[in-house]
Design a protein around this nucleic acid. Structure first.
Length: 133
DNA sequence: TTTCTTACA
DNA sequence: TGTAAGTA
């Protein structure tokens, strides 16, 4: 299928699809007349995968790593052959760990800011009372 | 009409 | 990333 149909079926923009090819994530498996890019079902699977990973904040290198363990001609939704699917799972879980760490850091920061806010409230309160008296 | 490349905002 | 121009 050509890029227009791919865009319709993946919900990705033409720009994004071409961008992924440029970044070496997903390239059309074949070329047609006039150098037209022809995508296969497997390419579609990879694009769907990229879309989800991008949504989860995977960076280019990580997405490439994941796609690298995805063998050609094998549908993503299938049985676990014990290797590539296990690597996909590991990659996803790894990202979960990173996101948990990020949330923890954000909460820590929020707590610090709360503490600072309390401190300043106390300071301004004491200033008010001392100048008033 | 669709796609490709290149370039600009 | 969207969009536009000029092609094939």
């Amino acid at each position: 299928m050509r890029i227009g149909e791919v865009a319709r079926r993946t919900g990705l923009s033409l720009r994004a699809i071409r961008r992924y090819a440029q970044d070496g994530l997903v390239r059309a498996s074949a070329r047609g007349q006039g150098d037209v890019h022809l995508y296969t079902g497997q390419d579609l699977v990879r694009l769907h995968l990229v879309r989800r990973m991008e949504h989860l904040g995977f960076d280019l290198a990580r997405m490439r790593d994941v796609l690298a363990v995805l063998p050609p001609g094998v549908p993503v939704v299938g049985e676990d052959d014990g290797t590539w699917l296990a690597e996909l799972v590991a990659a996803a879980e790894g990202r979960c760990g990173e996101l948990r760490a990020a949330v923890a850091a954000a909460e820590e920061f929020a707590a610090a800011l709360r503490k600072l806010a309390d401190h300043m409230r106390i300071l301004s309160a004491s200033r008010t009372t001392s100048t008033t008296r």
